[in-house]
């Protein structure tokens, strides 16, 4: 018995994706420093998407105390770095998750929490849930199990920190680079009229993350429907009244 497990060398060290501005030594040093800090300050979006959220309070509270490694919960997607998909995603939730994800600021990380995000888990034959998270938004890490224990949550956060420190957790770039693919999957699920108020393509253009996969036939569809871009209200919006539930 060796006291060390054999290191699997089959995948090459993933290079840091090089930013357009990251040419000089100065920016490189600064980016290393930034990565260092990013890894040590992670704000988790306070969004209980599924039942895995029940293990988050133990993780952050006194017994396991994730603040000692710099992880703390944050309220709105604007402030958060990590989107924890805590378990199954119903289709209705997935829309909000995508919106929240797009509203988060890059670099942003997604952790799939529990079996349900990987393959549907317990609800593999449910008509209401989404089976694979990473078809819709890029997930950086997954935790297996139902339900994952706080120790597992801690471990995945530590792993994420390592990845960030090494510049490897770059799922968010994938979303910009292959937006068309993600959007296609979303449209397949939600219908052609799907769009969020967030303009991912313009953002990608603004920050130079435009790639071949950013735009395609799915995004063409999006531009046609994007009310937000045109500042107009579609005429076919349903009127109030028909299905409105009135309170006594």
């Amino acid at each position: 018995m060796s006291d060390k497990l054999p290191v699997i060398e089959d995948q090459p060290e993933i290079c840091r994706s090089v930013d357009a501005g990251e040419r000089s030594v100065w920016t490189r040093v600064m980016n290393r420093f930034a990565d260092h800090c990013r890894a040590r300050s992670l704000f988790v979006l306070h969004y209980c998407t599924g039942c895995g959220a029940i293990e988050l309070p133990p993780t952050i509270t006194s017994r396991f105390d994730m603040e000692r490694v710099g992880v703390s919960p944050m309220v709105t997607p604007r402030q958060a770095d990590i989107l924890l998909i805590t378990g199954y995603l119903s289709i209705k939730t997935l829309k909000r998750v995508i919106l929240s994800y797009e509203q988060m600021q890059s670099p942003k990380y997604v952790i799939g929490f529990g079996s349900c995000t990987i393959n549907g888990g317990m609800y593999w034959n449910s008509y209401a849930t989404v089976k694979r998270l990473d078809q819709y938004i890029p997930a950086d890490l997954f935790i297996a199990g139902c339900m994952p224990r706080p120790e597992a949550v801690q471990q995945v956060l530590l792993k994420l920190m390592e990845d960030i420190d090494a510049g490897k957790a770059n799922g968010w770039q994938d979303y910009y680079n292959n937006y068309d693919r993600y959007l296609g999957n979303q449209q397949a699920l939600f219908g052609e009229s799907w769009h969020t108020p967030t303009d991912v393509i313009a953002e990608a253009k603004h920050y130079g993350y435009l790639a071949d996969g950013t735009m395609g036939r799915h995004t063409d569809l999006l531009l046609k429907r994007a009310d937000y871009a045109l500042d107009r209200v579609p005429e076919d919006y349903p009127e109030r009244g028909k299905n409105e539930r009135r309170l006594p």
């Binding site: 209705k92 829309k95 769009h195 108020p197 109030r240 299905n243 409105e244």
Partner: peptide, 27 residues
């Protein structure tokens, strides 16, 4: 995108407004 559950207030009185409490809300 018009979310499925949204029923708009067409011409609300000017002193009223809507607020969304959740699903992504700590309260």
């Amino acid at each position: 995108m018009r979310p499925e559950n949204y029923r708009p207030v067409k011409h609300p009185p000017s002193h009223e407004y809507e607020l969304y409490f959740g699903p992504n809300h700590p309260g």
